[in-house]
């Protein structure tokens, strides 16, 4: 027996600021979201606007939001995502809408351009260069902007933040032995929000190519610290946090906060006082795990 589901599509006319929902029943069996959209355009409303090209999960054109999460229309089966017989289709977040499910994607490309995603090299390639596996992250990325849509920091930081796809591209070039960007590339990332990622893993979750974007960002931060680029709030946060763990086996909240904020901690005094009145005081001496001396051995020695 065939399954019928209700497609609910958010529609918006070009130039309009408001949107409305259109509902339509479709047979779901064996159909992708893209199949259903094409069927609707061909049989119900030829003005329905959406982007699509390869139908194979390669070109990255057809990303949209399906039941509240970004996906590729061509690789998403209706039967797999329907909730109580309904599939809600909306344009990607963090973009202005051009028409219906089509967004104005220029900010996405600008954010990626900002990290200069090309090989920086003024020398020829005299030897064969073996590229490490991390490069695969960047080459697997199909630039569909699903991660850009779901990134919550992107939503509140429209400038000075390259976003998840930008970080993945940067990670690819930082790992590439043929690239001579080195510290300069990492410095550029600092100005493009490397320390503003809030670790909420929406990007990794929605990536249709299963790229570990959160892991790539963590690795970039690690490399920035190793290159001596930790003299900012993000770098200090990691350093002071780690110092407490290495020393006592536990994070020391007082020194992590004081070390991160520096003299700016005076701006936090009203909040600190309100918390202290309720007994929420991080003491400088902190807590210590029993037998914590052995924990120090777990950290890389300087010459490792």
């Amino acid at each position: 027996m065939s399954t019928t589901i209700t497609l609910v599509i958010r529609r918006q006319k070009p130039g309009d600021s408001g949107s409305f929902f259109m509902e339509h029943q479709v047979e779901a069996d064996g159909k992708t979201v893209l199949d259903a959209l094409k069927e609707m355009r061909d049989t119900v409303d030829p003005s329905l606007a959406f982007r699509a090209q390869c139908k194979s999960g390669i070109c990255g054109s057809c990303a949209l939001r399906v039941n509240g999460s970004a996906r590729l229309a061509c690789s998403t089966f209706l039967s797999a995502v329907q909730i109580e017989g309904r599939v809600v289709l909306e344009p990607l977040l963090n973009f202005a809408v051009e028409e219906d499910l089509v967004v104005q994607d220029r900010p996405f490309w600008k954010a990626i351009e900002a990290i200069k995603p090309w090989l920086w090299s003024d020398k020829g390639y005299e030897h064969e260069a073996v590229v490490p596996p991390q490069v695969k992250n960047g080459t697997d990325c199909i630039l569909c902007a699903a991660c850009y849509s779901e990134c919550e920091v992107q939503a509140v930081k429209p400038s000075g933040y390259t976003g998840p796809a930008g970080f993945v591209q940067a990670h690819r070039f930082v790992a590439d032995k043929r690239d001579h960007g080195g510290k300069e590339r990492l410095k550029l990332l600092e100005t493009e929000g490397l320390w503003s990622c809030a670790h909420s893993y929406n990007c990794s979750e929605v990536c249709p190519k299963d790229i570990d974007i959160g892991g790539a960002i963590a690795d970039l931060r690690s490399q920035a610290l190793a290159a001596g680029l930790g003299r900012n709030a993000g770098g200090r946060h990691v350093a002071w946090f780690t110092r407490g763990v290495r020393r006592n086996g536990k994070m020391n909240e007082f020194w992590t906060l004081a070390g991160t904020r520096g003299w700016r901690i005076i701006f936090d005094l009203p909040t600190g006082l309100a918390m202290a009145i309720r007994g929420k005081i991080p003491w400088p001496w902190g807590k210590k795990a029993k037998s914590s001396r052995e924990v120090r051995r777990y950290f890389r020695s300087k010459n490792q």
Binding site: S222, V238, F241, T242, V245, A289, K290, Y298, F299, R300
Partner: peptide, 26 residues
């Protein structure tokens, strides 16, 4: 278990990835 140490919270990982995993393994 009083010997339990910090998990690393994804922060230690950014300084030393294997140290965070070692903390958890402990």
């Amino acid at each position: 278990i009083p010997e339990f140490a910090c998990c690393g919270a994804g922060m230690v990982r950014e300084q030393d990835a294997y140290a965070e995993i070692a903390l958890c393994a402990r």
